[in-house]
Amino acid sequence: MATAVVAAAYGGPEVLSVVETQVPSPGPGEVTIAVRASGVNPIDYKLYSGAFGSSPDNLPVRLGLEVAGVITAVGPEAAGPAGPLSVGDEVVAYPIKGGYTSSVTVPANVVVPKPADLSWEQASGLLAVGATAVHAVAVAKVSSADTVLIHGGSGGVGLLAVQLSLAAGANVVATASERNQALLREVGAVPVTYGPGLLDRVTHAAPSGVNAAIDAVGTDEAIDVSLALVPEAIRVVSIAAFHRADTGIALIGNGPGADPGTEIRANAWRQLLPLAATGKLTLLPAKTYPLAEAARAHTFLREGHPNGKLVLLPAQ
């Protein structure tokens, strides 16, 4: 048996409950993982909020796309992208279903080794935002010849996109509130405050011009300023501004008409995990909650500004 968090109805965090559930034995190409940490993502609450539909046939909703943990059972012919998997392996799994749990059986093809130098909390919260950042940087075609504008540079996706762009040799200007600008300076970006006058501030910060932009916030301001600065609209990449599809920008992710980037995202771990393990990526701190307090974590995610990754910890 395992402890799991489910949404028994559609609504707010109050519909989340903790249940005991059977964990199926792994079949061919599957493994079972004893979960040490589960990453919390905005899409999790969208699944039970009704944003994606509210059919009672889909209840209860199992939540959680990414986990870090230890393999406890291996099915026949179970191998991950990095090779064979064994009981006792410390791993990260993404994307999965039902990760808010103490134990979960998942396809082996999304299970990769966890670096020993990466904590459970950081490992469980890296791949969802990280895969999006890798995808955005790739679609924007960021290179050492570029100056890149990144909107929402201090958020989960934005901060990784900033650092991946810097690692590619680009200059980076990134938007953030004043309280978060020190972090951007620390990693090597030039921070600017969003809001009225943003175009002038970016122009001043990048006098030689801007070649590409990555939008992690989805506001009209972010898109309008990007289009005013970037010569080619297709090098303006957004993970959220799906309502601006008619501008010719590149949309990525799960929204309407967006490029899902399936292959890029599936292989993003190869870049992200080694960089994080060696300290070459500055990761947002993780704020942890017991698994049983998932509703409290979701309330904070929806109403606050987490300034870090939220992670659920099953009782050990």
Rank of each mutant, 00 (worst) to 15 (best):
residue 82 A to D: 13
residue 58 N to V: 13
residue 270 R to E: 14
residue 199 L to P: 00
residue 147 T to I: 08
residue 192 V to C: 05
residue 265 R to A: 07
residue 93 A to Q: 07
residue 250 A to Y: 04
residue 11 G to Q: 12
residue 101 T to L: 03
residue 223 I to R: 01
residue 24 P to T: 08
residue 43 I to A: 12
residue 81 P to M: 02
residue 46 K to Y: 13
residue 298 H to E: 13
residue 279 G to Y: 01
residue 222 A to F: 04
residue 274 P to L: 10
residue 250 A to Q: 09
residue 150 I to V: 13
residue 2 A to I: 08
residue 245 A to G: 03
residue 168 A to L: 10
residue 309 K to P: 02
residue 82 A to F: 03
residue 120 W to H: 01
residue 223 I to L: 05
residue 44 D to A: 01
residue 118 L to A: 12
residue 109 N to P: 01
residue 20 E to K: 14
residue 149 L to K: 08
residue 163 Q to G: 08
residue 43 I to H: 04
residue 248 G to E: 03
residue 276 A to E: 01
residue 114 K to R: 15
residue 252 I to A: 01
residue 185 R to L: 13
residue 188 G to R: 04
residue 6 V to Q: 11
residue 107 P to D: 13
residue 300 F to W: 06
residue 122 Q to Y: 01
residue 167 A to E: 07
residue 225 V to K: 08
residue 303 E to C: 03
residue 28 P to W: 00
residue 124 S to R: 04
residue 119 S to C: 11
residue 140 A to V: 10
residue 314 P to N: 05
residue 288 T to N: 07
residue 40 V to N: 11
residue 186 E to I: 02
residue 41 N to Q: 13
residue 67 V to W: 01
residue 242 F to C: 01
residue 81 P to Q: 03
residue 272 L to D: 06
residue 241 A to W: 13
residue 141 K to E: 15
residue 174 A to F: 11
residue 131 A to G: 15
residue 285 P to M: 10
residue 244 R to L: 11
residue 114 K to D: 02
residue 222 A to E: 03
residue 35 V to P: 06
residue 68 A to Q: 02
residue 279 G to N: 01
residue 286 A to T: 11
residue 207 P to N: 13
residue 278 T to R: 03
residue 68 A to K: 01
residue 133 A to P: 00
residue 74 V to A: 08
residue 156 G to K: 05
residue 210 V to R: 01
residue 249 I to E: 03
residue 156 G to W: 02
residue 256 P to V: 12
residue 6 V to S: 05
residue 200 D to H: 05
residue 49 S to H: 06
residue 32 T to S: 14
residue 37 A to I: 07
residue 307 N to E: 15
